[in-house]
Amino acid sequence: MKNFLLNTIVFLVFLTKVQACVPTITSPRMNVFSQNSILFCDNDDTEVLSTQLYDSYQWYKQEWAAVPPGTPNPNPWIAIQGANSQTLTINGTDDLLYYFKVVVVQGACSAESQVILADGYNFGLPYLIANFEPGTFQSLGNNNFNVCNGASVVLENGFDQVYGLHTWYKCIPVGIPPVPGDPCIIPNENGDTYTATTTGFYGFWACTSYCPNICLFLDLPNFIQLNFGEWLFCSLSNPEFDSNSIKLYPNPTTQVLFVGNQSDNQKTLLKIMDMSGKVVFSISDYHYGEPIDLSTLEAGSYLLVSETEEGKILRNKFVKK
């Protein structure tokens, strides 16, 4: 019985020593984006790799190679000269796209760690994405848009997985980095997205989550101008639009369209817009009842807007076959 207990104790001591001689590499930013990898913030960035306490250490590195999955890396493992301590500091200039491991010795036990990769840079220039509600906007070019009142535009940082804290602006900021009290700063809006419902010149300043010391400003040419208003094209998607506000015939039409009645005998400003809000036809002295030649228009749906001399605005939709 004593021999059995003694053998058990010896085995447990041996097992403990074996288990203690299984090194694991850790680091502050390990596994944030992928298993057993870290990313640098820039060339000057450093990362400290560490393992458990052992009698001795030797760190190794191996250059990454573009090989098919399952194919051995042809590059050799190289012992890093002088890397014989519990930790190893790597940097974005010398160690990018290298694998690392450590071989340790604890008494009679020798073992090596898992392999980790310095995988690249966690960086991307910020850019703005604008998500519009269909039928509620009109592009004027150069990041300038007319938007229907009551609609909303969701603005987001295209690299939201990289950036964390945001400062959103509704006009050209006083200074960069953000200046407290700047009237252009939208208060209490610090997330990856912002929903705009009022006119403004929108952009942001953002700091990366992974690399908190890296903050960038969305350059002014990449800001977006949103002009909210009661634009004529908004009636195209308004379910409450009164389709009988002015008489049109025939509707649908193949070539000629008549507006109003011959008896109206009144001059009016008349415009025809396509579904994007673009004016495709206009006349400043149209007389109700006169035929309008639409033979040059493409087939589709259109909005006709008529403004009388008294300033009354009449509208209706029609289809060109």
Rank of each mutant, 00 (worst) to 15 (best):
G229E: 02
W231P: 07
G229Q: 01
T253N: 12
S237Q: 05
S243T: 05
N261Y: 15
K247G: 04
E240F: 14
I246W: 10
L236T: 11
T254L: 11
D264F: 08
S263M: 12
F223A: 14
D242N: 05
C234N: 05
G260S: 03
L232V: 14
I224K: 13
N238E: 05
N261R: 15
E240T: 07
N227H: 06
D242T: 00
E230W: 04
D219L: 09
F258T: 07
V259P: 11
W231F: 09
Q266S: 15
S245T: 00
I246K: 09
P250A: 04
N261S: 15
Y249C: 07
V256A: 10
P221A: 05
N222V: 02
T268I: 04
L248H: 02
N227I: 03
I246V: 13
F233A: 03
D242P: 00
Q255F: 10
N251W: 07
N251H: 12
F223H: 14
N251Q: 08
F233C: 04
L248E: 02
E230G: 07
Q225T: 14
L232M: 08
F241T: 13
W231R: 07
Q262M: 14
E240V: 06
D219G: 11
N261C: 12
D264S: 08
Q225K: 13
L248A: 01
Y249E: 12
F233V: 09
N227T: 03
F228V: 05
V259S: 05
Q255P: 08
L236Y: 04
L269V: 07
E230V: 13
S243I: 08
N251S: 08
L226G: 01
S263T: 14
L236F: 10
K267Y: 10
C234Y: 02
F241S: 12
N227R: 06
V256T: 15
L220A: 08
V256Q: 14
S235F: 12
F241P: 02
G229T: 00
F258C: 00
Q266H: 11
L257W: 02
L270G: 03
N222H: 06
I224P: 10
D219P: 14
S243V: 05
G260R: 01
S245Q: 09
L270A: 06
F258R: 05
L248I: 00
L257K: 04
N227Q: 11
I224H: 10
D264H: 09
Q255H: 13
N222L: 09
C234D: 03
P221Y: 08
S243P: 04
L232Y: 08
L232R: 12
S235Y: 12
D219M: 09
S263L: 11
N251C: 06
L220I: 15
F223P: 11
D242I: 01
K267R: 10
N244D: 10
G260E: 01
S263N: 13
F228T: 05
P239S: 00
F241G: 02
E240Q: 08
Q266F: 06
W231T: 09
T253R: 06
E230P: 02
E230H: 10
V259L: 10
N251P: 02
N251T: 01
K267G: 05
D242M: 02
I246Q: 09
S263K: 10
V256N: 14
N261K: 15
L257M: 03
S263Q: 11
P250H: 07
V256W: 13
S243A: 12
L257S: 03
L220M: 07
F233N: 07
N265D: 14
L248R: 01
P239I: 01
N227K: 05
N265S: 13
S243E: 15
L269P: 00
I246C: 12
